[in-house]
Amino acid sequence: MFYYLSHLKESLSVFNVFNYITFRCGAAVLTGLLISLLISPAVIRKLRSYKIGQVQRKDGPQSHLSKNGTPTMGGIIIIISLLSSVLLWARLDNRFVWLLLVVSVLLSFVGILDDYTKLVKKNPNGAPSWVKLVVQIITAVAVVGYLGAYPPNPLYPDVLTVPYFNGAFMLSLGGFYLVFAMLMIIGSSNATNLTDGLDGLAAGSVIFCACAYAVFAYLAGNIGFASYLKIIYVAGGGEIAVFLSALIGACMGFLWYNAYPAQVFMGDTSSLFLGGVIATAAICIKQELVLPIAGGIFVMETLSVIIQMGYFRLTGGKRFFKMAPLHHHFELKGVAEPKVIVRFWIVGIVLMLMALASLKIR
C-alpha cells in the first residue's frame, strides 16, 4: 500500500523512499515485529480464556509435562502480523506476492482446522491426515500449475541451478520438475511442523532460513546483481524479499513470547504454512536446491523421523534415536531444552551463511 505513495515523488521527493525495496524490507520487518508484539498479549489471554492449551504426550520427555495447558494456536499471531505487514509494504500488483499470500492462507487454514479439532473439539488426533494432505496437495498443485503456465523466468522453466557451481551448470528436469516442486512445498510444510517441538526452535529456524531467501530474492529481482552473481533473473522477484521480511518480523515478535519458557505455542496454525511459503519463495526465485542448505535444520529433523521409522520396522522394534524428531533425542540424552534450542539456532545460522556463500562460490 505505502509503495504507491512513491507516485507522489514529483510533488515531494521524500515519497521516493517508498520506491526502494530495501527501505520497504526494513519497514516490513519492523511492522511485522511491532504488530506481533502488540497483539500477542491479547491473543494469549483469549486463548487462555478459551482453555486452548497444549496437551503433552506422556511418552515424550518428562520435562515437557509442565507445559500442559500452555496456550497454543498462537500461530494466529504470525499470520495476522504477516498479512498486515505485507499488505502495507509490498507492491500489491506483484504476482509473486499474491501467490505467497494464497499459500499462507490455504496452509494456515488447514493448520487452524487441525488445531481447532484437536484442542476445541477435544479430538486428540486432530483433523484427519487425509484432509491435511489434500489441502497441501491442492496448494502445491495451484502453485506449480501457475508457475508452470507463467514461469518466473521463461528461459528456465524447468531447470535447477546447482549451488556452488558456475551459473551455467543447470539440471533440466523436464516434466518431472512439476512433481519435484510439489514435493518441495509439501515436504517443507511438514518438515517445519516436525521441528516445532521445543520453545522457539521452529520460529528461530524459520527466521534464519527466511533471511537467506530474502537476500536471494532481492538479488534475483535485480538484473544487475543477478547477472554479476550468475543467478537466474526473476522480474519482480524483489517483492518476495519484502514478503519474507514481513515474515521475519512476525516470527521475531512471536518469538518474544515463544522463547523458553514459552508463554504460547504456534501449533499447526502456522507451523504448516511457514515451511510451505518458504519453499514457494525458493521456487519463485529459482533457488530450489539452496533450500536443503538454508533449511538444513528442517531436513535433519525430517530425516531423523524417517530413519527412526525405517530402523524400527527393519529391526522389529529397536530405535535408532532415543526419540524422534532429533531435538527430543538430545533432550533424552540429558541436554537441557534451552541448550538444545540455542545449539540448533547456531547450526541454523551457520547453514544460513553457507547458503549465502553459494552466491560467490561459483
Rank of each mutant, 00 (worst) to 15 (best):
V299T: 14
L274P: 01
M352Q: 09
I207R: 02
P152V: 10
I44W: 06
A90L: 05
A226Q: 05
W89F: 12
R362D: 13
T269G: 11
V143C: 09
R48W: 07
L38P: 03
V86S: 07
I231L: 10
A203C: 00
W345L: 02
T161A: 10
G348V: 00
F96L: 02
L353Q: 09
Q136P: 03
F96W: 11
T269D: 07
A324K: 04
L201S: 08
H327T: 05
V131D: 00
I39W: 06
S63D: 13
M309C: 12
F23N: 12
T70C: 12
L171F: 03
P151N: 07
A355K: 09
Y50Q: 13
H7D: 13
S205I: 09
G145W: 07
F15D: 00
L83H: 05
L351F: 11
G26I: 05
K318N: 06
V144T: 14
N193Y: 05
I248G: 11
V159E: 14
I77C: 01
T22L: 14
H7T: 11
S36V: 04
Y260N: 13
A294G: 00
P61S: 11
N123F: 05
G224F: 07
L99R: 06
E239N: 01
G69M: 12
E288D: 11
L83E: 11
V14W: 13
T302F: 08
L147R: 00
I341H: 02
Y150C: 01
A294P: 02
Y213H: 01
V143R: 04
E10W: 12
A357G: 01
S189K: 01
K121R: 13
G317P: 04
N16C: 09
Y257K: 03
A210D: 04
L106K: 06
I79R: 07
V86L: 09
M300A: 14
A168P: 08
T195A: 15
M170S: 04
P151W: 08
K333M: 15
N94F: 04
A149N: 12
I341N: 06
V135F: 13
N123R: 14
D59K: 13
V29L: 14
G236S: 05
A281M: 07
S205Y: 10
V159A: 11
L326N: 10
S270P: 02
A214P: 10
G75I: 06
V264T: 00
E239Y: 08
G224D: 14
A212H: 02
A202E: 14
H64C: 00
T22F: 15
V17Q: 12
I293C: 08
M73A: 08
E239F: 03
S13T: 11
S188L: 04
F180C: 00
I79N: 03
G174M: 02
V234P: 04
S271C: 02
N94Q: 12
W256F: 15
A90Y: 01
L88D: 01
A220S: 15
L37M: 06
I112S: 02
L326W: 01
